[in-house]
Design a protein around this nucleic acid. Structure first.
Lengths: 131, 131
DNA sequence: CTTGACCTTAACACCGGTGTCAGGCTTTAC
DNA sequence: GTAAAGCCTGACACCGGTGTTAAGGTCAAG
């Protein structure tokens, strides 16, 4: 498929897909005219990239990890031992991050539940905004 | 206390503390010479700021929320009704973010557990690095 | 008086993925 | 043949909190 379709199917912008390629995360083939042609499996690759990017991993590390995430149909391919330390560091960072987010959410919950049950003021505010 | 002590007690850099002030999150008093003097309660304020910043809220919104987080000793002060919609939006975003992080962690767990039990190569790599 | 720790403001730079625009080529549809 | 949609490369800008440095003021201790 071409870049437009991949963008639609993954939700990634064309800009991002080209960026991923520049970082070595994707290697689409090309038509004689230079158009990028992506394999069906690239849909999953992009999804993985999106997930890991959102989790704070950078493209350099994702590039190293991706080859270890090739699904051979029967589980994952044998992993990359030399990546293990960094892999575990990232995992720990993600866990810390989740904890921080949970703490922040609890903090917000406190504020939310402390909001006066009398929400006259809020309703007036909404009425003002929505005209 | 002065800025150096607050920095030590909160882990925030002096740079960050001055930035928070510039954004209206802190309003320390000043000595005649211009030194910032922080109240004891500012320690908690900074901790809240750190928590919310780490959760992706920006300083502009934190500035609005902070007054609603004044602990009156007996629970929180009555909240700010007009903030409720944004508050809930941020809460939802945090929850989405947690979900995304959990997904990423599961993905990494797959790679980690797919690493060959034979870690000869990794040990050799460690030996090489640690000399 | 001087040294050194601590403080002040101001300015510049960075990260790193993404938005966006310009100028131009290719393919598809009519 | 022509219009429209799609794709190409390249370049500039942004976010927004933080690091860092420069040039200087303040203050307690020796």
């Amino acid at each position: 498929m071409r870049i437009g379709e991949l963008a639609k199917r993954t939700g990634a912008s064309e800009r991002s897909l080209r960026y991923y390629e520049a970082q070595g995360l994707l290697s689409p083939s090309r038509t004689p005219a230079g158009y990028r042609i992506y394999a069906e499996s690239d849909v999953d690759v992009v999804r993985h990239v999106q997930t890991l990017l959102a989790a704070g991993l950078n493209t350099a590390f994702i590039k190293e990890v991706l080859p270890c995430m090739v699904d051979t149909g029967e589980g994952l391919a044998p992993g990359c031992p030399e990546l293990l330390p960094h892999l575990q560091k990232e995992r720990a960072r993600i866990t810390m991050s989740i904890d921080g987010l949970a703490t922040a959410r609890t903090l917000l919950d406190g504020v939310i539940s402390a909001t006066p049950p009398d929400n006259t003021e809020y309703e007036a505010w909404v009425a003002r905004r929505t005209g």
